[in-house]
């Protein structure tokens, strides 16, 4: 039976939660194509994660917990994936469009001279050929594309329903690495974990701050070099972060806030930052420039809090509050603690 291969990305012995969305997308595509799903799981704890994939609808799983797969690296992963694609000739190869997923599938598509379609938000088939809808021009418009032959597809995080456990069964086969460690040039020297932050791309709730966060009523300590930077950093830390924490969400920022040095670039949402689509996006002191909108307009519910009632962000928002974020956000955090029992 023809197959759809799905890569379940792992991190520290667990499946990345968005990988189950890739499996959900693969399950739906396979049923359209009359194919079955084969899951590929590499890294620590791979056999157990492969079992989990079987319970979530994969008919078969290929797994390896070889040491060379412990942390994702392009060379060993792509060498194995390309070999498997040549061997099994799947109709499609699916993964979530994480930084690793995008890189791995593009590389393997090149190795096997196959079609690459990235960041799909819809997936289908016409006459046996895989089709996608994907955002282009920084998310300002959409494009339809069709693949000829094996289609490598990355699916955007939070665009597809995750595959739920349905009590499926199947077999887990062990696969062997293609590259020996000695022939892998890339070596991971260190990994500095950003503590206490939720990955923006995976977050169900994001609380973002803009340039206006510098209007902190607190005074910077005497002699502070850049008082506005101090005030903004304090605002992110003591006002937005507590709101994000009570919601179990992540902290985002506009480009203006990042460029002003108020917060690290890793938090930037928008055209030259991350594209996100959480269930809830709370934009505080963000005017909503088109570049920012491009990164968050697909959020399910958008809340805008801004002192300027004419700010463009209110055109995207489901709920709007005109006022001072330093008065409203703490009140919101307190109310949520009370109502959510935290």
């Amino acid at each position: 039976m023809s197959t759809v291969l799905v890569w379940i990305e792992t991190h520290d012995g667990n499946a990345r939660p968005t990988s189950w969305e890739a499996l959900g997308a693969a399950n739906a595509l396979a049923s359209t194509l009359g194919a079955s799903v084969t899951a590929l799981v590499l890294g620590k704890n791979a056999p157990a994660i492969a079992q989990d994939a079987l319970t979530r609808g994969a008919a078969k799983a290929l797994a390896s917990d070889d040491a060379s797969f412990e942390t994702y690296r392009l060379e060993p992963y792509a060498a194995l994936l390309s070999a498997l694609v040549k061997e099994h000739a799947p109709l499609a190869v699916v993964a979530v469009a994480s930084s690793a997923g995008r890189e791995l599938l593009a590389a393997s598509a090149a190795d096997t001279d196959s079609a690459m379609l990235s960041d799909a938000i819809e997936l289908g088939a016409v006459a046996g050929n895989v089709t996608v809808v994907r955002p282009v021009y920084a998310g300002k418009i959409l494009s339809d594309a069709v693949a000829e032959g094996t289609a490598f597809v990355t699916v955007r995080a939070r665009a597809f329903q995750p595959a739920a456990p349905v009590g499926g069964t199947g077999e887990v086969l062990t696969v062997a690495p293609v590259l020996a460690e000695a022939s892998i040039a890339a070596k991971l020297e260190s990994f500095e974990v950003e503590v206490g932050t939720v990955n923006l791309g995976d977050a169900a709730i994001i609380v973002s701050g803009g340039r206006g966060i510098a209007n902190n009523p607190k005074d910077a300590p005497a002699g502070t070099d850049k008082p506005d930077v101090w005030k903004a950093k304090d605002g992110f830390e003591t006002v937005l972060k507590p709101l994000a924490d009570v919601l179990g969400g992540a902290v985002g920022a506009s480009r203006a806030a990042v460029d002003a040095g108020y917060i690290d670039y890793a938090h930037q949402v928008g055209q030259t930052g991350k594209t996100v689509a959480p269930d809830l996006y709370i934009a505080t002191a963000i005017s909503g420039a088109i570049q920012h909108q491009a990164g968050m307009r697909n959020s399910k519910v958008i809340v805008a809090i801004n002192k300027d009632g004419d700010a463009p962000i209110f055109k995207l928002a489901r709920y709007g509050i005109v006022g001072d974020i330093y008065k409203i956000v703490p009140a919101l955090t307190a109310e949520l603690k009370k109502r959510l029992g935290k």
Partner: peptide
């Protein structure tokens, strides 16, 4: 995702 890697 989640941090900074140093790779040679």
């Amino acid at each position: 995702e989640g941090g900074k890697q140093v790779v040679s």
